[in-house]
């Protein structure tokens, strides 16, 4: 984990061919919140992108380099207090060593973040 103690994985499930679901808990004690922002903790969007990349690495079983973040929409301001638990849903397709990742982060019907990326 790049950002130490940013999150924990509380469970996983696997649906369909390539879809993996991770149940996540954010850690409000993570040091990143000391600076983002002082007295007003907000989960940095890039830390959530990194978390999804690490989950993709776990599915792929190896370290990956994100050469292209084609699109990432951050639709909810996530805070570890208001949004302590969430689900990450990943679809990972590999062809000739390049992985196409589609991932969403959210809870119930609400989407916090969605992204498409190429990794290799």
């Amino acid at each position: 984990m790049l950002i130490k103690d940013y999150y924990t994985i509380e469970g996983t499930s696997h649906t369909g061919d390539n879809t993996h679901i991770f149940h996540i808990r954010l850690n409000p004690e993570c040091t990143v919140y000391q600076g983002h922002f002082p007295g007003e903790p907000v989960s940095p969007g890039v830390c959530n992108i990194q978390m999804l990349k690490e989950l993709a690495e776990q599915v792929a079983g190896k370290r990956l380099f994100m050469s292209n973040l084609n699109l990432c929409r951050l639709t909810t301001l996530v805070t570890p207090q208001a949004h302590p638990t969430m689900s990450a849903t990943l679809t990972l397709d590999e062809k000739d060593g390049t992985y196409k990742l589609r991932a969403t982060l959210g809870k119930d019907e609400e989407i916090y973040l969605e992204m498409k990326a190429e990794l290799n």
Partner: peptide
């Protein structure tokens, strides 16, 4: 806050 990142090529 970042709302959207597009075509971030590294």
């Amino acid at each position: 806050f970042i709302g959207e990142v597009k075509k971030f090529k590294i």
